[in-house]
Amino acid sequence: MRNTNQLIHQLKQQLNTLERDALNHDQQLPSQQKKMLQDIERFNSQLFIQQGAQLTPCIQQLKKDIVQLEKQLSLKLDIKIIELSCQRIQDRFTALRRALVTTNINVKTAEQKRANNRARYAKKQQQQHADSGFAWIANNVMKNSHQIYQELNKHLNWATTFEQKIAEMETKLANCHSADKITIQNEILSLHRRLGKCRQAISYIEDRIQMFERPNRNTNR
């Protein structure tokens, strides 16, 4: 009886120390690190059901383990069951202590993963720029928002001009001599092609504007 009481006492002392360390760890966590690790699984699921940077929730799970062990001891269950419970508690103690000193490593790993994802995304966007036929826009005017909107307004004005010319030519086509119809029709067709290309450029620039402004929105949150 004395040995079992001593065992529980030692486990509770260890837990009290870990609880102070976990509370201190969580209180000192920068908000950026909390956000960085919010979806990261910190443990094997057989040890703790816990994700994110904060470790205090693990303490509650350990408290339940010790309470369960106390019940097993009071009921004098088979020694193998007791040993398994003790081993599980010690494994969780070890995992939690390790987690307390590896948060910075987890953060750096998450940062590297995010940087790799950004690099892959940027490479994909560059390829899309090259394939779109509008890479010259990205190269010349995607330096700042002022240039982007200038280029958008320029293409919107061109589109309006083309639409007006098409309307004029269609009116002219309706009233021209039959000998001139083919020439006017070809001119209208050419204007429609230029208008279509202009609209594609407008869509392209609008997509780039959304990409340009998205980091700013995330920063302001």
Rank of each mutant, 00 (worst) to 15 (best):
R88H: 11
F212P: 02
D207T: 11
C58I: 01
Q54C: 10
Q61C: 05
D207R: 11
D91R: 13
Q54R: 08
S74V: 08
E19W: 15
R92N: 06
R221P: 02
E163Q: 14
I49T: 11
K71S: 09
S178R: 11
I166Y: 04
R114S: 13
Q185C: 02
S85P: 00
E111L: 09
A110G: 03
S190A: 15
Q87M: 10
I66V: 04
L77C: 00
L156I: 09
Q27Y: 12
Q87T: 15
H129D: 14
T56D: 08
R2H: 08
P57V: 00
L11N: 02
R199Y: 08
S45Q: 11
R97D: 12
H129F: 10
T102M: 05
S145M: 13
I81S: 07
T219G: 07
Q210V: 05
K76D: 11
R2Y: 02
L62R: 03
L195G: 02
N153G: 08
R20M: 15
R208G: 03
I209D: 05
S132P: 00
A179E: 15
T17H: 15
R199H: 10
K12D: 14
N186A: 13
L18E: 01
L191W: 00
H25L: 03
L152S: 06
Q72H: 06
Q147I: 02
R114G: 04
R221K: 10
R199V: 02
N175K: 12
L11T: 00
N218K: 12
L100G: 04
I148D: 03
N24C: 04
T219E: 15
K63S: 03
L69E: 01
R118F: 10
D21Q: 13
I188P: 00
T160P: 03
L69A: 01
K124F: 11
N153Y: 14
K35W: 05
Q10N: 15
L189P: 00
Q50I: 06
V141R: 06
A138G: 04
Q13N: 10
T171Y: 09
L73A: 04
N144C: 05
I8G: 05
Q112R: 11
R118E: 14
T94I: 10
D131P: 01
L47Y: 02
R208N: 06
K181E: 15
I188S: 01
K80Q: 11
T161G: 07
S31K: 10
V67Q: 14
D131I: 11
Q27D: 14
F43V: 03
I49L: 10
K143A: 10
E206N: 12
T4W: 07
P215W: 01
N24H: 05
C198P: 02
Q13K: 10
K64Q: 13
L18R: 03
I66N: 01
L7T: 05
Y121E: 14
